[in-house]
Design a binder for these strands. Structure first.
Length: 523
DNA sequence: AGTGCAGTTGACTTT
DNA sequence: TAAAGTCAACTGCAC
């Protein structure tokens, strides 16, 4: 029998049935219409891409069958959410709308305002619940870490009760790329979506892949298998972050007596889950960080340069390791964190571009694009936050450090096959480069040492300017980490082996060593 | 066998 | 989650 009224559970970045608070809450109080709306207008945005939709599509297929197993398969519609809600409301009266809070981009933020307006107009109660460590409505960071901790250690949502089927109700096809105006963006090695894959990844990570997490996450060669690779699953919610955090904690408890390295690895991973929420909280508190510099002193400093942007986006900068990283990212939809930071540093410091356009490109390349993490990270890696030290990666040194044999470069930049091993990181020093490489591989756009030096000078002169520190202090109150432990906790102080100079300043306090430095008081 | 010295290493500071 | 610069201890070697 068709119910007279219904509660809609609106799926967004939470494509699962376990630890889904909104779904469980709705299903335990009445008939549920589980809904996903594919929004072509969202997919027309400059930060979205077909690899993300493809991952979501696979996840929707899993979700549909998981929900079918509980009584009612997922309903999918294509179009505008407000229009979709209006149409459904005409078919079956909507009593209530449930969803998880979303820390999205400006487009989804504005869409949610329209949805809220529609709900008010039609007297539909919309309940948004939290699904991660992001706390809505905070004005600053005091007390945030405690609140996150409470959420992450609280009990997960109870098992989903059976749902009443909606008879003779069109569930709708799950759209393909072309239905949303998308075409393939050539990502042959993309991760596959879905809750089954997510669960497999979590299991294989905690069973064995985590063993050398700490030592193997820096190089893109080892990171590819050592990293959890849960990021797209967390971004689209095929796993809940709480589920992952609690599984990690259980491993830690189970293994408190065994290998130190593994314990360290699990702690490192757990700490990254903390930073995941920490960064999302920044965009939640200040959505305009998607567009404007966190610290205004960096306004009007850099430039948009179409030629440099194109070379960087295509992986044709002439720096072999940088190009290899970009090409791996394009082909796989993923690269490890350290290399993401290096790619951004090269765009922002050596190539001196504004971060917005490179940030859009990376957003499209990441299968795991999560706006709340992405834009604050982009700003941090570009040095525009005011509360983080600028980290200017050396594109050549990183190559020697992370890919000493050059095998990674050779895999992704085959044009360099003619270059001798010893020179593959710096082909411009090869005496035959002019004859044998000229039409195959681009020359560098700038001298990386000179460019870094110039960038360093400009950045540090900005930081010395009047009112810089006062601004930085305000930003810290709003966004800075209060966390003093985890990755950056104090090592046991070891007595210095060398004699300390009498006039040496006191060692930095623990707090100042943290990734987010407390601004120094103004003297 | 101790001394002088150039080059290396590692801790720490500065940008 | 950086890299370059500085300083002094350390190392290996010649004498």
């Amino acid at each position: 029998m068709k119910p007279k009224s219904i509660q809609i559970v609106w799926f967004k970045r939470d494509l699962r049935i376990t630890d889904h608070i909104a779904l469980t809450a709705a299903a335990s109080t009445g008939a549920v219409l589980p809904l996903y709306v594919a929004e072509p207008d969202y997919w027309a945005g400059s930060d979205t891409s077909s690899r993300q939709w493809s991952f979501i599509r696979e996840s929707l297929m899993d979700l549909r069958s998981a929900l079918a197993g509980r009584g009612q398969p997922l309903v999918v519609r294509v179009g505008d959410v407000v229009t979709t809600l209006s149409e459904l409301h005409r078919q079956i009266k909507i009593d209530r709308l449930w969803s998880h809070e979303e820390t999205g981009n400006r487009w989804t933020f504005e869409r949610d305002i329209r949805v809220a307006g529609w709900c008010r107009q039609h007297s539909v109660r919309w309940t948004e619940l939290t699904q991660n460590g992001v706390i809505r409505g905070l004005s600053d960071r005091d007390g945030w870490a405690r609140k996150r901790g409470q959420f992450m250690t609280a009990s997960m949502a109870p098992a989903l009760p059976p749902m009443q089927p909606l008879e003779r109700f069109d569930i709708g096809p799950i759209p393909h790329l072309h239905d949303l105006g998308l075409s393939s963006d050539c990502c042959p090695f993309r991760q596959i979506g879905g809750l089954v894959k997510g669960r497999e990844r979590l299991k294989s990570f905690l069973d064995s892949r985590d063993a050398n997490y700490r030592s193997e996450i820096s190089s893109p060669i080892t990171a590819e298998t050592t990293c959890s690779r849960l990021s797209p699953h967390l971004a689209f919610g095929t796993l809940s972050i709480r589920e992952v955090a609690q599984a990690t904690d259980q491993e830690l408890k189970k293994n408190s007596g065994v290998p130190r390295a593994r314990r360290q690895s699990l702690l490192s991973f757990s700490s990254r889950l903390h930073w995941h929420c920490h960064f999302m909280q920044k965009l939640e508190n200040q959505p305009e960080l998607e567009f404007i510099n966190m610290h205004p002193a960096y306004n009007e400093l850099r430039v948009d340069d179409a030629k440099r942007l194109e070379a960087w986006c295509r992986g044709e900068t002439g720096w072999p390791f940088v190009d290899a990283c970009m090409r791996m990212l394009r082909a796989t939809g993923w690269i490890n964190f350290r290399m993401r930071a290096m790619l951004m540093a090269v765009a922002s410091y050596h190539l001196w571009m504004n971060w917005r356009q490179p940030g859009e490109h990376l957003a499209r390349m990441f299968t795991d694009y999560e706006p709340g993490i992405h834009w604050p990270q982009i700003q941090m890696q570009s040095g525009t936050t005011g509360i983080n030290l600028p980290r200017i990666y050396n594109p050549v040194k990183q190559g020697y450090d992370q890919d000493p044999s050059g095998s990674f470069i050779r895999r992704w930049v085959p044009e360099l096959s003619v270059v001798p091993d010893a020179l593959v990181h710096e082909p411009w020093t090869w005496e035959e480069a002019d004859q044998r490489l000229d039409d195959r591989y681009p020359r560098v756009l700038v001298d990386y040492k000179e460019a870094a030096k110039r960038a360093r000078q400009i950045i540090w002169s900005v930081r010395k300017s009047e009112s810089y520190q006062a601004n930085a202090k305000k930003i810290y109150e709003r966004h800075g980490s209060r966390k003093k432990t985890g990755l950056f906790r104090a090592k046991n102080p070891r007595p210095r082996q060398t004699v300390r100079r009498a006039d040496a300043p006191q060692q930095l306090t623990l707090f100042e060593c943290a990734a987010e430095m407390r601004p120094k008081p103004i003297n």
